Amino acid sequence: MDGLKQVRIGEVADDILEQIPKGAFLTVKAQDKLNTMTIGWGTFGRMWNKPVFMVMVRYSRYTYELIEKADTFTVSVPLNGKFKEALAFCGSKSGRDHDKFKECNLTAKPGQKVDTPVIEGCDIHVECRILYKQPLDPEKLPEEIIDMSYKNGDFHVLYYGEILGVYVEEQ
Rank of each mutant, 00 (worst) to 15 (best):
T27P: 04
M54N: 07
L4G: 08
D2E: 15
D123A: 08
I130E: 03
L136K: 06
M47I: 14
E103Y: 15
G111E: 00
P51I: 00
F101S: 05
I124E: 01
P21K: 05
V52C: 05
I146E: 00
M56N: 08
L164Y: 02
A30D: 13
E68A: 11
K33H: 13
K109F: 15
R61D: 06
P135F: 09
A30W: 13
I9H: 04
L4D: 06
K33C: 10
N49P: 03
E85T: 12
T27N: 07
E144N: 13
D97Q: 13
P138G: 04
V77K: 03
R58T: 00
P78I: 05
E144I: 11
G10T: 10
E127D: 09
K5R: 15
Y150W: 07
L131M: 12
W41Q: 08
T74L: 04
T74D: 02
D99M: 09
P142K: 09
E85R: 12
P142I: 08
F101V: 02
I16D: 00
E139P: 08
L26H: 00
I16E: 02
D14R: 12
V28F: 08
A30N: 11
K140A: 10
G153H: 05
E103G: 06
P117F: 01
K93G: 08
I39N: 03
N35C: 10
V157G: 00
K84E: 15
C104S: 07
F73N: 02
L66D: 05
M47R: 11
P138I: 09
S92I: 08
H156M: 02
K5V: 14
S94F: 14
Q31T: 12
Y159W: 06
D71S: 12
E85S: 11
V118G: 02
G3W: 02
